[in-house]
């Protein structure tokens, strides 16, 4: 380690620690007692019927911001697939041994349960479409690593994942236009006629479970196709 590395460390570590401590104390001190956070905590169940306040903020009060985040992922997927377009997948990969293939083949059914649970219980428990979708994308990676790209690329192709991602993003937008059709705001939840159900049930929260499902499929297909695009590039270009 050179001397200038040490000097950089000696400068940057205290600066980062001090800035972090300053920001944390500022955030705690300046949070107003009757600001938006207090309003959300008081009214979120009455407004949307969903228990998880974080999900209510993400998909009801601030659903338009979530649409922006989803389009950031869409843009990055489009950029990566444009970079690596046309490269054939590496078909020499055979995957792992027969022992791993057989056991993971059975266990994959169990691995499906966790992401699906996370997505469908997004309005009741921590998690939601994004977390469950990333878990599904990791499942795509697992299938490719274990079974090898020769077998997996027969049905799990990058272009199919792109189509799935675009379709679910379109579904998110369609759900948002229900409010506009009735003269309300974009992505209106309960006021646009979505039934809020009885609080605590799986079928509650109005449009929130449907938006969670759309985001889950979209994130899973998008991040999975990022991995497949990187995998199919030959690295020399």
């Amino acid at each position: 380690m050179k001397l200038r590395h040490l000097a950089g460390l000696a400068l940057s570590v205290p600066t980062a620690l001090g800035l972090g401590a300053l920001l944390l104390s500022e955030a705690v001190v300046t949070s107003p007692p009757d600001g938006p956070a207090a309003h959300y905590l008081r009214n979120s169940i009455a407004d949307s019927g969903a228990i998880n306040v974080v999900t209510t903020v993400l998909l009801d009060y601030r659903a338009f911001d979530t649409l922006g985040e989803a389009s950031v992922i869409l843009a990055s997927v489009a950029a990566i697939s444009a970079l690596f377009a046309g490269a054939a997948p590496d078909r020499s990969e055979q995957g792992l041994s027969i022992l791993v293939k057989t056991s993971v083949g059975y266990l994959t059914a169990v691995f499906w349960i966790f992401p699906i649970y996370i997505v469908f219980h997004g309005h009741l428990s921590p998690g939601g479409g994004f977390q469950g979708g990333v878990s599904l994308a990791v499942l795509v990676i697992l299938v490719y690593v274990v079974f090898g790209s020769r077998r997996a690329s027969a049905w799990l192709t990058s272009s199919r994942l792109h189509v799935t991602e675009s379709a679910s993003a379109f579904g998110f937008l369609l759900l948002g236009t229900v409010g506009i059709a009735q003269g309300l705001a974009f992505l209106t939840n309960a006021a646009a006629g979505f039934p809020t159900g009885s609080t605590g049930n799986l079928l509650s929260g109005g449009v929130i479970p449907l938006l969670n499902l759309a985001i889950g499929i979209k994130v899973a297909a998008g991040l999975g196709s990022i991995y497949l695009d990187i995998l199919s590039s030959d690295g020399s270009r």
Binding site: I118, V134, S135, V138, V145, G235
Partner: peptide, 25 residues
């Protein structure tokens, strides 16, 4: 907990696989 779940699946699951693949390529 929501943020923790996202950090776990992205940081430990997805990014590791993407980084290992990119460096192998």
């Amino acid at each position: 907990v929501d943020v923790a779940m996202a950090e776990a699946v992205i940081g430990a699951g997805l990014m590791t696989a993407v980084f290992v693949t990119a460096i192998g390529k």
